[in-house]
Design a binder for these strands. Structure first.
Lengths: 337, 337
DNA sequence: CGAGCCATGGCAAGCGGTTGCCAAAACTTT
DNA sequence: AAAGTTTTGGCAACCGCTTGCCATGGCTCG
């Protein structure tokens, strides 16, 4: 079965060296620093290596250099389709740079985040943390000992990429205002969500400028299931529009409204955030703030790689804010009556 | 910035050893084989280690032993929400076993699969490949040199887990037959998909037993976008029911039908496979064959771990077939007229 | 009280590459 | 032709941890 593994039969540079009649160091150089050896020698080594099926053991290479060509990405909830885009973007960019990506689910827990970073520390070149639930202090502290970039979170002196929430939320409010809405209820997500707090703040501010009343209820679990309670509570407030922490919650609200015979948007308008898979074909299709999340995954990886490659020097692009835009679909409409 | 990294400041067993006044080997044993050292010594070492913030370097540990406590999972298309169940299950189980999971997208390419396995070979304890696009021969060959388990694919002598397609597809046909359908069109997915081939075979067989005519068209890309062409083609066949390669395609078909003013299920019934996120809230909600994909991720990881732990001996459960069940929703109905 | 065990800890040799340093060989340059 | 460069390849140390083997000393047992 797996007899080939664990030192079983895999050829090493020593095998190649003997076979090619050179020393191991020459093989090493021939493979990773071809200019350093005679072209003819390099060719011979390459030929032998190919013939023997030699593959460099990345572990062994990583040990002395500390460079593993591996990156880790942690998401707060791998269940949330929102992160699909992030993961895909990160994976893609990592692969393009010849790196391997480790994906981990931290299950909304700051402790799990910290523990994973400690554990994986020496085995990866850096971390991307999406929607971190850790405190600013913890993040700052960890970023002193590890290369770290953030997605959907800003902390002083830690490179990050977020999609614009202030401007995007302003667009939501504007859209709702133009439809005649005068009272908005915000359906809050996880208490530790930095992004959630920002969204609420931006919403309250923008609404204030329009003389629209706002209210925040929750917190609700940011899931479709959580939408049931959120819908009931929202309906109870009498607001004509509900802005949900994210699309998962918004879709759950839509479902619950359908169950209860509440018409969307005739009775209440619903808005989400993220434009996840499904937001365009739920019913009614959801009006939501779309962001370039694949791009954010890519960018966060890029910044990480930049930090690694010129170590110590902070990347040129330090705090990236990606644009967002409102995808207006059918869950929003004129205010009732 | 990252000065703590790459040999910078992280304490090693040597630091702990000096501080505790013992030799490095004693520290090593104290940490990983406590029975081997005096309890008092072990306690002292533990205390010092904790005080210094020592964390064992998994890379260094893996080099001599060949055991990395890392598993790799490859999916054919990380875009497909279907795999998120698989990923989640695998990630969870891996973590429970103290392992780290690497997730990779092979983008429907057998070459990428093979290359990744070669590359990661020595750095992981084994591979789970979901919906592999490689040939049986390639898989057999690779499984000789690497620990390997398969999801949604069966190859002789390679442990695998699939969700039942024969029985499930029979249920689909039965359901359709009971609604009066006499002709079914199958919308094919990727040509290299083993599962797709199986689904079609089961469908043709089951339909034959009911005297229902079947036809297979395609291949279509297994994506929502691919559903447009699939819908048009399906409608062209005059069949009263369409069974799509997977839910992504089925949802795309639903959308296209809506666009074209074709009523589902009044004009045509649509069935998918996988019961992905969104299948229950698209419109109309999709009738689909649901399988336990999280469970399949977990099981595949379990089998891999079992192979690793008693090396050479094949796991007890070798070819697992998980049950499936038909989730009947609103995309299927009585035959037209 | 001496022989034999066992518990305990240290030594040193790896694991598979990388890399600084040195020496020999091959060229240049004057 | 002598001296100075450059190219090329080898030696050996090292990355951090594991582990087989050995030495020591305390105990047990006869």
């Amino acid at each position: 079965m797996a007899e080939g593994r664990a030192g079983g039969g895999r050829p090493t540079i020593y095998h190649v060296a003997k076979e090619a009649g050179v020393s191991p160091s020459t093989v090493s150089r021939a493979m990773s620093n071809p200019g350093r050896v005679n072209a003819a020698t390099a060719a011979r080594v390459a030929e032998v290596a190919a013939r023997l099926g030699y593959r460099t053991n990345t572990l062994a290479r990583a040990l002395p250099s500390g460079r593993t060509d591996t990156l880790a990405l942690f998401v707060s909830d791998i269940t949330n389709p929102h992160f699909f885009g992030v993961i895909r973007g990160a994976e893609h960019q990592a692969r393009a740079a010849g790196c391997t990506l480790i994906v981990g689910d931290t299950e909304e827990s700051p402790e799990v985040e910290a523990r994973n970073i400690e554990r994986l520390g020496p085995s990866v070149d850096g971390f991307v943390i999406a929607a971190s639930r850790m405190s600013d202090e913890e993040i700052t502290k960890l970023s002193a000992g590890h290369r770290l970039t953030l997605i959907s979170r800003q902390v002083a002196d830690v490179p990050s990429v977020i999609v614009d929430h202030a401007e995007g939320t302003r667009q939501i409010v504007e859209h709702l205002a133009s439809l005649g809405h005068r009272s908005i209820v915000f359906l809050g997500g996880p208490p530790r969500s930095w992004l959630g707090a920002r969204r609420w703040k931006s919403l309250a501010a923008a609404a204030g400028r329009h003389g629209i009343s706002t209210r925040r209820i929750g917190p609700f679990p940011p899931t479709v299931a959580g939408g049931a309670a959120a819908a009931d509570a929202a309906l109870g407030t009498g607001a004509t529009a509900a802005v949900a922490h994210n699309d998962l919650l918004a879709i759950g609200v839509l479902r619950r409204c359908a169950e209860r015979g509440v018409a969307v948007p005739a009775d209440i308008s619903v808005v989400g955030y993220d434009d996840i898979f499904g937001a365009d074909f739920c019913s009614p299709p959801l009006t939501t703030l779309a962001g370039q999340f694949e791009e954010s995954g890519r960018t966060a990886v890029d910044m990480l790689l930049a930090m690694r490659d010129r170590d110590g020097i902070r990347p040129a692009r330090d705090m990236v804010v990606l644009p967002s835009h409102l995808a207006i679909r059918h869950s929003t409409g004129p205010t009732p009556r």
